[in-house]
Design a binder for these strands. Structure first.
Lengths: 246, 246
DNA sequence: CGCGCCTTTGAAGGAGCTCAATTTAGGTGG
DNA sequence: CCACCTAAATTGAGCTCCTTCAAAGGCGCG
């Protein structure tokens, strides 16, 4: 396992992040806000932080103070249960917000670990709350983002509760593909940033099963896999796999 | 399946609900608010609605306008996927809030169905947002409730992704027991309001498996089951089941 | 170039599912 | 109040899909 070596707390580097100029603003917190409201956000998000591959944006148990928007790179969040169980709860790409699960207990329940060299915008939550008291559009948007997280967790529950291995992998690939598209990347060709084990953990499967299903998909001509490099050759067929649960 | 007959929209009965006098206020939205803030909530929650067993508090696809606090009774929420899949996403008892997943799309993604004769407080969401702009404590509390929902969905993901059938059932019973306790009921003796099939749907198991595991627990002396009536005889042993995933 | 980690693939085993039959409980109408 | 009817629950037997255990191959990095 990478990322287990002690990571020194980096002094957060004070760089103006300028949501107003960020090309992710349509995917991130500012989406749907007026120019003025985005300016207010700018004033709030003053700190960006780099995380090299394997480093943490935050750790389970850390006091909750901020949300973290992925500005570049790729993260996983890892839930550590009291009984030693350990599961990937999500993968997060540029424009996505991490840390909402920390609000309820004032502690982060999970680790956020960079799967490649990455950068996050640090968003002090109490200042975000302040601002959203004054800007109803921002308030509503924040609520939508939290609600979207609930919805997406529930659809993972559905996946874990009722899908077979092939369906899970198909849904996973289609989800990734769709998120890549939203970011202007190719929907059909990309590099996986995570290992088979991490995919398996997220999908409730063993790494061998993930590997086998990938091979099966490749034999069937749905995808072309070469280690971490994936090309999706037949999106409709992948969709059909999910639909055909007799 | 019960609850499939057409349910006429009940005219919401206008009853002052008075959070300030509700004995669930420590579990529900008002928890942690000052007297004055609770009064403000009172002014907002003017409508209660009765749902007889099988009736809906809201339906998947309905426009999102309000949150629903369970005032009495017991609900399940049921997610209906586009591909005909269908899964119970949660069970909700008195004092718990339903409908947060509707904020993101302005439509409820799931059905909320009463599993016994029940009553809900209808909380107009835009008025709740208004009020929470003026009352920081309420704002923070709302955020905590939403975050708690995220955390609890994630712990279901963990359950579905990494636990075996016995562990899932043990966790399920302990969770129910703990919620009963918080409401002043016996932690060890209660009636299940849902069927084996609904439990199975929630836990990603088939109803036969649920039944078999209950029988096994009974043979082992951990619980006493008689249809829907459950007595938990050995809470530590149930806890141990979850811990012992070799 | 060698080492470690990740991935692939095979074979055997097991947990939970499917199919099926029986029992029990709860609601309804005579 | 009892008989009936339907929905829910229990239990068994065989099967399937995924896991476990094991070994070999490939890629990247020092």
């Amino acid at each position: 396992m990478t990322g287990l070596k002690a990571v020194p707390k980096l002094d957060p580097e004070s760089i103006k992040s300028a949501c107003s100029k960020c090309n992710l603003r349509e995917l991130c917190l500012p989406s749907g806000l007026s120019g003025e409201e985005v300016d207010q956000l700018d004033s709030l998000i003053r700190v960006r932080r780099f995380c090299r591959k394997g480093e943490h944006a935050y750790r389970g148990g850390d006091q909750f103070e901020s949300l973290y928007a992925v500005r570049a790179g790729f993260f996983k969040t890892n839930l550590l249960n009291e009984d030693g169980r350990d599961q990937v709860t999500g993968f997060h790409m540029a424009g996505e917000l991490m840390g909402l699960d920390g609000i309820s207990t004032d502690n982060h329940p999970c680790d956020a670990i960079a799967l490649e060299d990455s950068e996050v915008c640090v968003i002090p939550f109490s200042r975000l709350e302040e601002l959203s008291r004054e800007a109803p559009a921002l308030q509503r948007h924040l609520h939508k983002i939290m609600s979207r997280e609930i919805v997406s967790d529930q659809s993972v529950m559905m996946l874990l509760g009722s899908m077979r291995a092939e369906e899970r992998l198909a849904a996973f690939l289609l989800n990734l593909s769709q998120r890549m598209t939203a970011r202007g990347y190719s929907p059909s060709e990309f590099n996986l940033r995570m290992t088979r084990e991490e995919i398996g953990s997220y999908l409730g499967l063993k790494l061998e099963t993930v590997s086998r299903v990938f091979s099966r998909f490749q034999n069937d001509g749905f995808i072309a896999v070469q280690q971490k490099h994936i090309r999706i050759l037949d999106i409709p067929k992948l969709r059909a796999i999910i639909g055909q649960h007799c």
